[in-house]
Design a protein around this nucleic acid. Structure first.
Lengths: 370, 370
DNA sequence: ATAAATTTGTGCGTATGTATC
DNA sequence: GGATACATACGCACAAATTTA
């Protein structure tokens, strides 16, 4: 009179779940076929199917037509409730940043994380807004490209708050000096060094350098540029080093280039090292406007191997930037920190990664001809 | 011989969901009984049960033994809205997409909304993943660039679910034919028309057209291109129309261009209309390789006024694309829908926006000289 | 209050389609 | 091609809950 409370398909379900929990059925293992289970338990195949159906809905089984039914892998905890990672960059649409974003997005998706994106337009106020917006809801981690890293960091309190809340974050391209967090960056000094050395080896002696010095990338590249000169015993002429800031970037370097090219034959530089490819393309136009040719009269080296480098008539000699690989690495590193967050009491962390740029020689540089 | 792709119980499911969505079946209402539905549709009761089973799992129906089956109440959204908006595009890092993303991000930030970003890489499976990931947590609205819109939409159920949950969404660039949602797009046919007309007005008579025809933009641009010829009474030579697909885009158009340029003087085209700027840049290289010059021997028109258009030696004549403005408009439109969401009982919606591209004449086109 | 009718839940049998090996 | 496995589809019978006469 009583035992009919529990339907047969529920009984079978209980039994199978018990088998899985006891380890008799291991994840990934092939289950007995529907017909076999039906016969063994004295049930019809339809009843077994009903059991399998429920177990599949609950994520315990995985059915493949033509192959069979398998015990599901134990869920990557939290995988069914996607977590969110924030990314804050200076720009979104320009230059190499789209590639970085893509790398981050691809790596996050692969691991089931969602991407919250925000940009600062190189404005520290907006960096603060972005940080607050990101943290207004639960966040698993954060990837940040610092804004004007050479000019100090008024938003330290936000980052300290992240530490306090045990939300891991990593920085890319550069790191705020005040913060000790993992960072992925390009060895910019080595890059500046290689650029100058390449030109010096080609016989160039008067090499102009154009560097944006409101971020650490620019100052590092300049440092490498100067060190290469020093190592060769060739002094870098102070009038050939042009420093500028983000705000001046549309006009100042262009005008400086025209001024330099308008000088007397002895003063005129025979090569330009540019802060990045974007500037290099600008200066190509300046050189053409001045009636000179690349690389005939002036050799040009860019930075970052951006899409611009090969879109121009004269394809640019430049230095590589990992771009999407850096984005993917940053995401991987961050996910690692998130996974270890609970255990590790802090410290022993950091590290990160330093990429050594490679010189790509294209058409914009050639041996100096007097 | 094809219609057997969709099982009967799925067909019924789709039909019932449509009825619910159209308001024919109101929440809380009693559904027809299993037997009645079976008889009415010429199905067995078991098949109807399978449909009901899925719908119950998905929370759309509620079954009570002995009483009947009811339409479930829509979940109570609102309340703690996170103010997050999702954006799903085909690509992130290429071409004009970074600008679109930037436009969306800027508009959202201004209104205090956060941006969840995901890309599909032109893969419908990944579109589905992205949709699920986005909807795994509360979402205010969604902006979608359809993936291969010309090839049908296997993810309709996801979008219907959005409707059901009263989450507004808008589409950009294209719209899935099955869905009646607001959409922002460029009048591509007008663009193709303008491109051809510009060249015809310059005296060109043999104009080659290169169009990617696996998406709606390409076919529309081609249509406009042909219509311009027809309106002028100048037939477009079939051998001058080159069609290609995404997969062939790295080689086929380049080789076709070389082949055309290698023809006899009478056959050789004097102008190229290109599907977009990316292709135009490729063909610039082909033209240079063939020993011809732009615009001296061949005029070239691109599309979308991408950054590539002005990065080249010969700056491209091209047609505008709103890019970041479209992104911003999409965000604004969506935020408007979000604000009105509660009141409007559905319908009276849609609209959207259609942008008419403008021709920008730069250096890559000139009057035909025999 | 009881019986009948209705509706969903459980269980089984059969047949055919389709993917995989 | 054949064998095997799951997917779809239809059929029937009875149980349990609810409503109605």
């Amino acid at each position: 009179m009583t035992e009919k409370q529990v339907p047969k398909y529920r009984m079978l379900k209980r039994e199978l779940l018990a088998s899985i929990d006891k380890g008799e059925l291991m994840p990934g293992e092939l289950m007995p076929s529907e017909n076999e289970l039906a016969e063994r338990h004295g049930l019809s195949r339809q009843t077994v199917r009903q059991t399998f159906g429920e177990l599949e809905r609950e994520g315990r089984l995985h059915r493949v037509k033509g192959k069979g039914t398998f015990v599901a892998e134990p869920p990557h905890r939290l995988a069914d409730d996607p977590q969110t990672v924030g990314l804050i960059t200076t720009y979104i649409s320009d230059y190499i940043f789209p590639s970085i974003v893509r790398g981050v997005e691809a790596a996050l998706r692969e691991r089931g994380y969602r991407l919250l994106l925000s940009s600062t337009n190189n404005d520290k106020e907006r960096e603060r807004e972005s940080l607050n917006m990101m943290m207004s809801q639960p966040l698993s981690g954060l990837i940040v490209e610092p804004t004007k890293s050479a000019e100090g960091n008024p938003n330290v309190d936000c980052y300290l708050d992240l530490d306090y809340r045990r939300i891991p974050y990593v920085m890319i391209n550069q790191r705020y000096a005040e913060l000790d967090c993992p960072c992925l960056l390009v060895d910019d000094e080595a890059g500046g060094y290689q650029a100058a050395e390449h030109l010096l080896a080609l016989g160039h002696r008067r090499i102009a350098g154009f560097f944006k010095t409101d971020d650490l990338q620019g100052t590092s590249r300049l440092r490498g540029f100067l060190r290469a000169h020093r190592d060769r015993g060739i002094p870098a002429a102070p009038d050939l080093v042009v420093r500028y800031t983000t705000e001046m970037r549309q006009t100042a370097p262009y005008e400086a280039a025209l001024r330099l090219l308008g000088g007397s034959a002895g003063e005129r530089p025979s090569a330009f090292v540019c802060y990045n490819d974007e500037l290099a393309v600008q200066l190509l136009a300046a050189i053409r406007f001045a009636g000179a040719s690349v690389p005939g009269d002036v050799s040009v080296v860019g930075f970052d191997d951006s899409p611009l480098a090969t879109a121009t008539e004269v394809k640019l000699t430049t230095l590589t930037h990992p771009k999407s690989a850096m984005g993917a690495d940053a995401a991987e590193l961050l996910l690692g920190l998130i996974a270890r967050r609970t255990q590790q009491p802090r410290g022993a962390s950091s590290s990160g990664k330093r990429y050594v740029p490679e010189l790509i020689v294209r058409e914009s540089t050639r041996r100096y001809q007097s």
